[in-house]
């Protein structure tokens, strides 16, 4: 697996949460699960970290009221439900395997 700059190593994900006014699932627990499942292959970094490969936008419902345009990176992955979380987890697991 190679990172955004083509170097071998961990994937670096910046996290952006919505405010969580009435989340339909536990956003923080999902991110923790994802981090645990992917282990060494992924590192969570600050959203504005220059090394970040993508931003994981985690919203508590499909309203997804986060201003994604103002986020520092173009590459984004979205989680707004548990099924999204499963999909993103599989995708990242595959990516980190190769």
């Amino acid at each position: 697996m190679r990172d955004r700059k083509g170097r071998p190593g961990k994937l670096k994900a910046g996290i952006k949460y919505c405010g969580g006014c009435r989340p339909e699932f536990d956003r923080v627990a999902v991110v923790k699960e994802l981090r645990e499942a992917l282990g060494e292959a992924i590192e969570m970094v600050r959203m504005d970290d220059e090394e970040a490969d993508f931003i994981l936008v985690v919203t508590g419902c499909k309203t997804a009221c986060v201003d994604v345009e103002s986020l520092p990176l173009k590459a984004k992955k979205y989680i707004s439900s548990l099924s999204d979380a499963r999909r993103v987890m599989e995708e990242l697991a595959n990516k980190t395997k190769t």
Binding site: Y17, C18, G19, C65
Partner: peptide, 8 residues
Amino acid sequence: KPEHEDIM
């Protein structure tokens, strides 16, 4: 809190 700052 990162999980709430967007509305706070």
